[in-house]
Design a binder for these strands. Structure first.
Length: 501
RNA sequence: GCCCCCAUAGUCUAGCGGCCUAGGACGUCACCCUUUCAAGGUGAAGAUCGCGGGUUCGAAUCCCGCUGGGGGUACCA
């Protein structure tokens, strides 16, 4: 029997204070999978109540990142929906939060607090100086009648609205990911948190909760870092007399070194970087699904549809996972190899264009050429962005010397330069006589040369490889020569032995 | 400091009282294939299931303590 019954409405509610990192995508992904698996709705809501850290293009970037990862939403800022608007600053402008904070004020469950930030900072410092272990703020106004609070406000004193947290007792709540036991927090550990800032803008604790209620969110799936503040949320639901959503706190993704959670400030884990670096969204999707969720004891490679079908909250585990780029790379390579030549070629074009190897947009000839080159590197690719480097010598002439590659690379181990030059000259001679420039013919000619000169294939092929590509590591030789064409092959061999004197 | 959460190899994980002499994957190493590099194939090393107590005929699995790690402690989210 499933632990989930009834309708399902979940949301992903990022704040546009920075670009999306993969931890954020994972949270979005799990919400999305949950909605898709149980046939519910996935809502995107922008929580832009942080006026200080607001980043102008962050919301657009976040949405682009989600789309890249293959996530779509049923309701959101760009497409609207029955519970709009889906941007908190707009909802604030409509007076939604003020309506509800007033309700709490009138019920005596919240109060206007006239203590300023500066005063609060001083109080905290003073407490610390006195060796007081933990400072929990409860404003003196919690005892005031509402009229007195309003009088102060009328006199122009700036105020925040704080939750009047109970002094005694405890709050408990259940978490779907942690199952079993309830999480219990003593009220003595709480303080009177700010609900509405002096600017009139609500804080997360208040805004998200009002919106979750109004948008009829049934399951709140968010990162584990929210567990400690959940008691405040439970208290608020009770204050309003609203039904609680089901909580499911997802394990955080730890940094690669295990020291702390992923941060937006570290740009190597920003989602938009993964497109640039040549990651396939389907590989990222698969990788992220496996961060905190598993299907069984051996299945890892799964399509989007398979994951949707198999995803259940029961199989989400509570312990944090560590960011593992090696694993992602492995999956990416696996996914690249599963694509057809044409599909890979198509995905390679933007990277080649960006590197300036082909035109923007690519011509028909360039496209065809890239399709013909793709098999040479297809199974060698781990990141699509490696393609320009691997294919560069097909588009630009490598030359021995200070401007190009080191001529010493031409000379195989245990061999002299003059000897190598002879080898390359012989190869030039042999290849210039090949009638049909095909893989079999080129191979036959070079194998015959190996036999005739009584040399090992390794050193000879190695010298040719360098002469033709300017590097010691390259795609298979015969395929490479054929893709290069007779003219360019011969010209490069000649330049090779000329450089060796 | 205080509060909360978590705990199986370097990493991600399977395991939800006997199928475990702990399974899979990444990474590492070796060998095979081979013109380089990959890919692929075969195999290996790597976990006293963090430690200590219980409960039970029997514990990686349940309970308690400790330790370690992580998170929170803002008029940030």
């Amino acid at each position: 029997m499933s632990v989930v019954s009834g309708p399902v409405r979940v949301r992903f509610a990022p704040s546009p204070t920075g670009y999306l990192h993969i931890g954020g995508v994972r949270t979005a992904l799990f919400n999305w999978l949950f909605a898709r698996h149980y046939g519910g709705q996935f809502v995107l809501r922008i929580e832009d109540t942080d006026e200080k850290r607001f980043v102008d293009d962050a919301a657009a970037d976040i949405m682009a990142s989600l789309r890249w990862a293959g996530l779509d939403w049923d309701e959101g800022p760009d497409i609207g929906g029955p519970f709009g608007p889906y941007v908190q600053s707009q909802r604030h402008a409509e007076g939604i939060y003020a309506t509800y904070s007033t309700q709490l004020l009138e019920a005596g469950l919240a109060y206007m607090s006239f203590t300023t930030e500066e005063e609060l900072a001083q109080m905290r410092a003073a407490a610390e100086a006195q060796g007081i272990k933990s400072f929990r703020f409860r404003g003196p106004e919690r005892a005031w009648p509402l009229e007195q609070q309003q009088e102060m406000a009328a006199r122009g004193r700036p105020f925040t609205i704080r939750l009047k947290t109970p002094l005694e007792g405890e709050t408990r709540f259940q978490d779907l990911v942690r199952g079993g036991d309830q999480i219990v927090v003593q009220h003595s550990q709480l303080q009177d948190i700010v609900l509405i800032k002096a600017s009139g803008m609500p804080v997360y604790h208040f805004a998200h909760l009002v919106d979750d209620h109004l948008m009829q969110i049934t399951h709140v799936m968010r990162a584990e870092e929210w567990v400690p503040s959940t008691p405040y949320h439970v208290l608020l639901y009770h204050a309003f007399g609203w039904n609680l959503p089901v909580f499911a706190h997802l394990p955080v993704i730890l940094r690669q070194d295990g020291k702390g959670k992923l941060s937006k400030r570290k740009d190597d884990i920003l989602t938009n970087r993964f497109w640039e670096r040549g990651y396939l969204p389907e590989a990222m999707f698969n990788y992220l699904a496996l961060q905190g969720w598993s299907y069984d004891d051996h299945t890892e490679l799964m399509s989007r549809d398979e994951i949707i079908e198999r995803f259940t909250i029961e199989r989400v585990q509570p312990s944090p996972a560590r960011w593992n780029p090696d694993k992602l790379k492995d999956l990416n390579g696996l996914y690249i190899r599963r694509l057809t030549t044409e599909q890979v070629a198509e995905r390679l074009l933007p990277y080649l264009t960006k590197a300036g190897l082909i035109a923007d947009p690519p011509t028909a000839d360039e496209r065809a050429y890239v399709v013909s080159l793709t098999p040479l590197i297809h199974e060698r690719l781990v990141e699509l962005s490696e393609a320009p480097d691997l294919l560069e010598f097909f588009f630009r002439e490598p030359s021995p010397g200070p401007e190009g590659y080191d001529p010493a690379l031409l000379v195989p181990k245990k061999m002299e330069a003059a000897q190598t030059a002879e080898l390359l000259r012989a190869a030039h001679e042999a290849l210039s006589q090949v009638k049909i420039w095909g893989i079999e013919q080129v191979e036959a000619a070079l194998r015959a040369l190996v036999a005739r000169l009584e040399v090992k294939p390794g050193p000879l092929f190695g010298a040719i490889r360098v002469a033709v590509s300017g590097r010691t590591v390259a795609p298979p030789l015969f395929e490479m020569l054929v893709a290069l064409g007779r003219e360019r092959t011969l010209a490069r061999l000649e330049r090779g032995y000329t450089a060796l004197g």
